[in-house]
């Protein structure tokens, strides 16, 4: 039994419908929203601002801190409010995904805080969060050398697909879990990779294909991010 047709009828290289909005929250210095189908992330950015406690500050560049969390009712089985090991790790890799694109050396001695909140989850939430964070950082006026675009690639049995949903994440073959989930963030202009995580089984050759798929999915995501940033409504 091979995965020949996607559950929701999409093409293998197609993402779900994506939506992006910039400047949605008044208090934040920058904010944005990004969704892959039913996975939706809201991000607010505060900074550059002073660092407390001061010993954390860097004389050469701004600190970038990310905080990823899901609201309790974003998932079917209620998530206990507050951070977990999972959310802490995602926070860490999200900061790593964004940092290489930011000109942090323009703001020494300061910190930029990025708060990522998943309001509705249907898999691929961390990549939705990174795409929303890109919008929010640009909306906050942080200078960037690239526009990070993140996407998940799945391997269902032997089939590679772009933008995994929950149903695919749980894919089984012969009664066994047979889905491999890869989260990737690419920097399209400089052709670099700033996030790479994988759970499952994959050969090195397949992984090379996966990376190419992620780069091919990036322009569409960038297009939505740029549209959102060009159509900012005053709050």
């Amino acid at each position: 039994m091979a995965y020949k047709k996607r559950y929701d009828g999409r093409g293998f290289k197609e993402t779900r419908e994506t939506k992006a909005t910039a400047n949605i929250l008044k208090r934040a210095d920058g904010s944005g929203e990004f969704s892959f189908g039913n996975s939706k992330a809201i991000v607010s950015v505060y900074g550059p601002k002073r660092v407390y406690p001061a010993f954390l500050e860097d004389a050469d560049k701004a600190l970038l801190r990310c905080y990823y969390d899901m609201i309790s009712f974003s998932v079917k089985e209620r998530k206990r409010p507050g951070p977990s090991r999972r959310s802490s790790e995602i926070s860490l890799v999200s900061a790593g995904a964004l940092k290489p694109a930011l000109l942090l050396n323009e703001f020494p001695h300061t910190v930029i805080d990025v708060f990522i909140m998943i309001t509705q989850a249907d898999a691929s939430t961390r990549v939705a969060g990174i795409n929303a964070a890109t919008i929010a950082l640009a909306n906050a006026g942080i200078p960037m050398t690239d526009l990070p675009a993140a996407v998940s690639i799945g391997k269902m049995g032997d089939t590679l697909v772009v933008d995994v949903n929950k149903e695919e994440e749980d894919y089984e073959e012969d009664g066994k879990h047979a889905a491999t989930d890869i989260a990737i963030c690419v920097l399209p202009r400089t052709k670099k990779i700033s996030l790479l995580q994988l759970d499952g089984k994959i050969t090195p050759e397949e992984l090379k294909k996966v990376i190419n798929m992620a780069f091919r999915a990036a322009p569409e995501i960038n297009k939505k991010q740029i549209e959102a940033l060009k159509n900012v409504e005053e709050l």
Binding site: K26, I71, S72, F73, S74, T119, Q120, D122
Partner: peptide, 21 residues
């Protein structure tokens, strides 16, 4: 606002925004 919640509401009161689920 979340298909996974038995109910979920986004309240906008002027610029104040609160999610309740």
């Amino acid at each position: 606002i979340s298909i996974n919640a038995e109910s979920s509401v986004k309240v906008k009161l002027g610029e104040t925004i609160v999610l309740v689920g």
